[in-house]
């Protein structure tokens, strides 16, 4: 065998192969990133730069004037506020219900536990489109009861119904998928630790918060982040349950703004960037958790 020759070709082959890999990935990355570039660069273009031919690839100046105009045409700051309130409340409440249920499913033994768990898991097959129709009328119904109560006892606030934060938050604060994920983490913590804590007189409640939760912090961060992202990008449910402009979240505000701004792409791109940017920044700092979370759990998003 001609060893040296093989070696030489294989070395130049290796370089060639690496160049090919980089080339292919760069093309793919261009396809992925171009919409972001086009949106952000578009947000800095003047109306003239948008409509002129040949096409302007790079705006001449970088100015925030389009953002100022978009923000003065529609109350995007209020939309942002609503989106943040809903997404934060959503994540915190989901974490609470998830921790409690995952703890019960992993540590307590009671009759019917596994049947209940399997039944809940089976609901993952159900498409949300089927649920939304009934959930809408549930929200309307609950809102009417709430209103009657508020009219009778003025101390009771209107917490649910069309155009309430409750309607935007409450239907999404319990998820069997997250319970399933966290239960797996809880199951990895040795059972002996639980029994030892019991012998030492530690209550379940205390054990859950001082041992289980701190030991599963990575899983909890991932669950919180996924909830936050899903809530931020939700579209159809917030569209259905909000009529009042003051209650709109960013997705919905953007949709109505699109109808109003028509083809004023310099403003549309500014508004679009305004909606996408906060999550891009969040992603920059947390992508380790997000990507690892998807890899481990297969969350479709």
């Amino acid at each position: 065998m001609a060893q040296p020759l093989t070696f030489a070709t294989s070395k130049s082959n290796k370089v060639l192969r690496q160049v090919a890999v980089y080339l292919f990935l760069s093309l793919g990355a261009l396809f992925m990133i171009f919409p972001f570039y086009w949106m952000i660069s578009g947000s800095f273009k003047t109306y003239q730069e948008i409509v002129t031919s040949p096409i302007v690839w790079i705006p001449a100046t970088i100015s925030l004037v389009n953002y100022q105009e978009a923000l003065s045409v529609a109350p995007f700051i209020i939309y942002l506020q609503n989106t943040v309130i809903v997404a934060v409340a959503n994540s915190i409440l989901t974490l609470l219900t998830t921790i409690l249920a995952a703890f019960a499913f992993s540590q307590f033994t009671f009759k019917g536990r596994d049947t209940l768990f399997a039944l809940l898991l089976a609901t993952l097959m159900i498409p949300s489109e089927l649920l939304i129709i009934t959930n809408y009328s549930t929200v309307v119904q609950l809102g009417r009861w709430n209103k009657t109560l508020t009219e009778t006892f003025s101390v009771i606030p209107q917490v649910i119904g069309i155009d309430t934060y409750g309607a935007l938050i409450v239907p999404f604060i319990a998820s069997i998928f997250y319970i399933y994920l966290l239960r797996q983490f809880f199951n990895q913590i040795p059972r002996q630790l639980y029994l030892a804590a019991k012998v030492d007189g530690c209550s379940d409640w205390k054990y859950m918060w001082t041992i289980m939760v701190p030991n599963s912090i990575n899983a909890l961060i991932t669950i919180g982040l996924f909830n936050f992202i899903a809530s931020w990008n939700a579209y159809i449910w917030p569209l259905l349950v909000t009529n009042n402009v003051e209650m709109r979240v960013l997705s919905i505000g953007l949709r109505y703004f699109t109808g109003e701004a028509g083809s004023e792409y310099h403003l549309l791109m500014a508004a679009g960037t305004f909606v996408v940017m906060p999550l891009l920044v969040l992603y920059l700092f947390t992508r380790r958790f997000i990507i690892a979370g998807v890899a481990r759990s297969g969350i479709k998003g």
């Binding site: 972001f36 990008n233 579209y235 960013l250 679009g272 997000i290």
Partner: peptide, 9 residues
Amino acid sequence: ITNIIAIGL
């Protein structure tokens, strides 16, 4: 992580 309505624009 991107809002589909926004990037759709």
